[in-house]
Design a protein around this nucleic acid. Structure first.
Lengths: 337, 337
DNA sequence: TCAAAAGTGTTATCCTTACACCCATGT
DNA sequence: ACATGGGTGTAAGGATAACACTTTTGA
């Protein structure tokens, strides 16, 4: 095949998620631009036996953390990705990783390519968990994605701006198309809010220019921008991609447990799912669903000090990973608590 | 960030699928090694505004075909990918494309990155559909994936080989693990055959050495290999990835219609889904599902000469693409006809 | 004693799956 | 007439979503 291939720089980017005290967190690396957070990332190097291995080693060296579950997300490579520099094309292969925020991750799980746990870089044995500020609140970066305590942000800030954008369409047909799109992605006009559409929402905001990293003519003046901290380059887009994937995946695969400690109460499990979905769930139905599918088993002991009646402790039935390669874990999107 | 990045070659690979006379077909490019088919592929070039645009132009120039629906599949980049040469690392970004085999594809649909329809290369206006042999029968490449006419191949060829492999495990624990894996991925031992597991099945066969492209010590003698034509490099693995993705996606998104002509009967639609799934479906339920979800609308006319009673013609209700960004198209995997 | 969270029970509704049967055409 | 595929109706079972209610702790 063609031998005149363009030589390119390839970068690995990680969206590593944990849930701490009811909020999803993303692991961030020491930011190159002070004050602007960045995802852990680094160039693909020749010595790395696989993409996953490379990613693991970058995360380890930049954050002192061993990853557990990892899966490939998406490969970005277009020009015009909202990058600050104009250094030509850079290819970013992004991954989604899940851990518990507390302990160091242990064995490698799943993946896609076979990554055995690569040389642990310089930071393996010493538990050099950098300052706790490494775990960035995901909803500080994408605030509109948290719908648990009201929809004020969407109602009062985003919707009016979108309406303005709809009105500014060229033709009437264009206008209806725009309105339709806004209604769907932000769950307005009779449509339900769908947590999975996180990426579409970000892309719409970007297109409308409501987000500071949008470039060129579209970008609105600072006062009109939607709240939410920006990140380096297009890392916020990558984060939205990861969040969307995670929200979708949680509904048909038992991946939540990668975010839980070995023992947990059903309440804690529910609140973890709620944190990810950004939505409250219906308690009884959630419990039934989990039990009915035999995802967990009781440990026998109970957890005290939950504020009320002590709750039974459960552990994940690891065997379902074998039993149910595909059949699925339905943790559905209910609305009321 | 690190400036000492390794320079690498990046390749775009396309799995383009159509369904012709009840069988899924893959578009192949002029093979570099005679007799061994290859997917359309080519290096990423500087002039290409996006990955998708690059892919489209490679497919157009190698096969004279404009793509419609395109989505990113997976990025492969490990050493030891079963490549024939040892020329170091090559990164392959793979895409899944859908078309009707007959006419030239028209407008660009969906994607992920925004690709406007790129310069049509040299082969746009002239309908240079290369010889019909470009469309390779997908089940000639992955024969075990077609379960519609019996399970002889799995029962009589694959299962015995797998049993042998299970027996050759080191420890008893290893043996049960192996058996378990085989039972699940090939739907044996009481488990159902799951069409979505196409990739896992290929990977298992590769690992066991039942496939000619497997390298090194594992590869079994030619007589023990499983039937099925090989492809260049790891293109067969990429094909399996595409088939798995398509089978999964068809169940929750209305992508089948990308494979259908503008007008079709419900019977034709069903047979298309059956071809992809490699499984027969239950007629009445299929019809109800399609109608109930209002995926199609009648055109008013009927198709004659279907062998029996003339069937009503339908067309896809394009508007569902807006209405149902996520909510989904359940075309489920029923068993009986 | 009261708030807070855990946990149980029941009901209506919809979707899935399956079965049996009738209709219209070409040969 | 009969084979072939198109098309309709209906019934059983299970999963979902929503109700209301009881239990056990800490403050």
């Amino acid at each position: 095949m063609g031998e005149e291939q363009e030589q390119l720089a390839v970068e690995l980017v990680a969206v590593v998620v944990a849930v701490v005290s009811g909020r999803p967190r993303v692991l961030t690396a020491p930011p190159p631009a002070p004050g602007i957070p960045a995802l852990p990332a680094g160039p693909l190097e020749a010595g790395q036996p696989s993409l996953q291995a490379g990613l693991r080693s970058w995360v380890a060296s930049q954050t002192g953390r061993q990853l557990g579950y990892v899966e490939q997300l998406y490969t970005f490579a277009d020009h015009d990705r909202g990058l600050d520099d104009t250094s030509g094309r850079r290819i970013s292969i992004s991954y989604l990783g899940l851990t518990t925020a507390g302990a160091e991750g242990a064995a490698a799980t799943e993946g896609g390519d076979a990554a055995t746990g690569s040389a642990p870089s310089m930071t393996s044995t010493t538990s050099m968990t950098s300052e706790e500020t490494d775990w960035y609140d995901a909803y500080a970066l994408l605030p509109w994605e948290d719908q648990r305590d009201g929809t004020r942000l969407v109602d009062e800030v985003i919707a009016p701006q979108l309406t303005h954008w709809v009105g500014a369409a060229g033709s009437p047909a264009d206008r209806t198309a725009r309105r339709h799109r806004c209604d769907l992605t932000f769950g307005r006009g009779g449509h339900a809010w769908l947590p999975d559409l996180a990426l579409q929402r970000y892309e719409l905001l970007y297109e409308v220019g409501l987000v500071p990293e949008a470039r060129g003519a579209w970008r609105l003046p600072d006062d009109d921008l939607v709240p939410g901290e920006r990140m380096i380059g297009d890392h916020r887009r990558i984060l939205a991609t990861g969040l969307a994937r995670l929200r979708a995946k949680i509904q048909y695969r038992p991946v939540v447990f990668e975010l839980m400690p070995p023992e947990f109460t059903l309440g804690e499990l529910q609140s973890c799912v709620e944190a990810l979905a950004g939505q409250a769930l219906h308690k009884q139905n959630f419990r039934r669903l989990v039990e009915q599918q035999a995802l967990v088993e009781e440990t026998g002991s109970v957890s005290s000090g939950t504020g009320g009646r002590p709750a039974r402790l459960y552990r994940f039935r690891r065997s379902v990973l074998d039993e149910r390669q595909v059949a699925g874990t339905k943790l559905p999107a209910l609305r009321t608590r």
